[in-house]
Design a protein around this nucleic acid. Structure first.
Lengths: 346, 346
DNA sequence: CTGAAAGCGCTTACAG
DNA sequence: CTGAAAGCGCTTACAG
């Protein structure tokens, strides 16, 4: 039933040349006279011939395909931020003529899965890969980079690892935390809590340190009781704050959440406990999630540009694949305070 | 730098067997004694050997990869519904051990792009493909199906086309429109307008016909002046309603939008014109978009289960790829009325 | 400028 | 149960 029976031998025969010449035409080699080129092209057009993909790869050509690996233990269908990260990346790559091979990794401890991911690189199914949601020191990623593959990573920083095939995209967490704390301080808050993100991810500790530094710069004390451990999910925001409320002795006047999803969860927990935001306690997020302007109260947050980030990531990755150089590339996205309704002056 | 130098010849040599036997072990053929199998497996494990992907395809094996083609003339990064469709599909496929090769098609009239999509099938980069956002009669899709490829399509219905390699997933548009009109009628609305979707897409005319049929069943007249043409985007909802308001003589008491995105746009246009929803006019959507419960007023809508749909689509497509049969498969998702605040009794 | 031939790394009849 | 060999369809030195 399916038939793409025509191959380069047939094309060569019909055009009255050799396969070598057909190949030269296909690949736009310069050493083919225009007349020959035209003759061959015409046959190619006529028979709608296109060279077999696998055969080309077997002879060492590039795949023009990028692997996109999303690490997420949980279902991701309803997480609009992750979704737009994925789609945004595919969109950028598509615009540059690349296909994206996406796979979701549930568990980075499952050696079978790890094996399959590495095979994707080994078998030349992809020219390079991108990881989203990985721990900062994920061994899988470090191995791939050590082996010379081009790897893009969102949210990673490892001191002194500056290989040219390591393409990093982060946001300015220090800057963002400072903008948030500056704003809260300007509203006269001095007792500020922080919901911390996943300590294994780069931005978890980075945001926590940024928070502490920003507090110090205002001469404000960081109360360890008000550092609430969580990860980056809405659910963890809810659970952590709920549990924290059950034992905390004295409340801060404001809480800074490591991201907006966590803030949504925190908001639900606070409201459930009968606390009004921002009446009783101010709440600030980070990311400027799609929903943040829609919820009640609209969430004050730190805006970051995910669309630009994934676009930059795709472009740099492709550039590194096509023209490898010796230069290490690292993108740090800017952050911007967006004032809405969830924080009030006291 | 990159090295996966070991191949089946080496493995065979080290294990003291032939490549044929190595291949038999890899592919789990029954005619290999356990002792031989163990011996070979041990060498494979030891050298972390994995057979070259392209070479396997060249010898006729499956790719375990599905193509996902999203047709969208516009940027899709901020469209959370499309995003979750894509991610949901990838998620389902991943769970079944398949990779998804995604590409975004900006323009189905660009023959260069069309060519590349078809090549993806011809070159056996994928075992089957899925199209989202296609016109009901998209020739590209019909050609691929005619050539025997397994193709999944969201939102298509062509009378009499029941090939077993055509995997269709729709929602019950008739049923949904009826539920919506029934509800509006129960609120005593008799003058109901409709914002129609893209006429080239299957669900565009289907919803319009469903609307008319439902109106008839209540003995209500359909005023042609209140049928507002649009496509399925928020922007078109806004523009169409804005323009419509500028010339419509008399307003209906309720408007049914072909989907929630369009309803969001319509809502903005109505509010801009000083009309209050639902005070002055009731508004009803379709899809139960992630945002519908969050906006002001929360949008009454027809709920459909996209997550289940893409999951079903992935499963059926994979089943059709792996065990082709003679049976035509068509999924029709159920619809359910979700009452919120945007419609009032009159 | 161009062709014959090697090489890429598998799988699978075929023969034993 | 197992191996030698053909075949998949390209690209690219190599030689002319």
């Amino acid at each position: 039933m399916k038939k793409n029976e025509i191959n380069s031998i047939e094309i060569a025969r019909i055009a009255g040349v050799s396969r070598s010449t057909v190949s030269r035409v296909i690949n736009n080699y310069p050493n083919v006279p225009q007349a020959t080129r035209d003759k061959v092209m015409q046959v190619i057009e006529q028979y709608k011939y296109s060279p077999n993909f696998s055969a080309r790869i077997m002879s060492g050509m590039k795949t023009r395909t990028i692997g996109l690996f999303l690490i997420s233990p949980e279902e991701v269908f309803h997480d609009s931020l992750t979704n737009s990260l994925i789609t945004g990346f595919i969109e950028s790559a598509s615009n540059q003529g690349y296909y994206v091979l996406t796979h979701i990794i549930r568990n980075t401890r499952d050696s079978e899965v790890l094996r399959k991911v590495k095979e994707t690189f080994y078998q030349q199914r992809i020219d390079g890969g991108v990881f989203i949601g990985a721990a900062n020191h994920e061994p899988l990623i470090e191995e791939l980079i050590a082996e010379g593959y081009v790897v893009g990573i969102i949210d990673q920083h490892i001191e002194g690892r500056n290989e040219p095939n390591r393409v990093i995209c982060n946001f300015g967490n220090d800057q963002g935390m400072k903008q948030g704390v500056d704003y809260l301080a300007s509203l006269n808050h001095r007792r500020i809590g922080f919901i911390a993100g996943d300590p294994l991810r780069c931005s978890g500790p980075e945001k926590l340190e940024g928070f502490k530094a920003a507090m110090r710069s205002h001469g404000l004390a960081v109360n360890p009781e008000w550092i609430i451990p969580a990860d980056f999910s809405e659910k963890s925001g809810y659970n952590s704050v709920k549990q924290w409320l059950s034992h905390v002795k004295e409340l801060p006047t404001a809480i800074f959440a490591c991201n907006d999803s966590v803030a949504f969860g925190a908001l639900a927990a606070l409201q459930e406990a009968g606390l009004c935001v921002p009446g009783d306690i101010s709440l600030m997020g980070f990311d400027d999630h799609l929903l943040s302007s829609r919820i009640q109260p609209a969430l004050t947050s730190i805006h970051v540009d995910f669309a630009e980030m994934v676009d930059t990531l795709a472009s740099r990755l492709i550039k590194t694949i096509e023209e490898p150089d010796k230069e290490f590339k690292k993108y740090v996205g800017t952050t911007e305070l967006v004032i809405r309704e969830s924080c009030r002056a006291i």
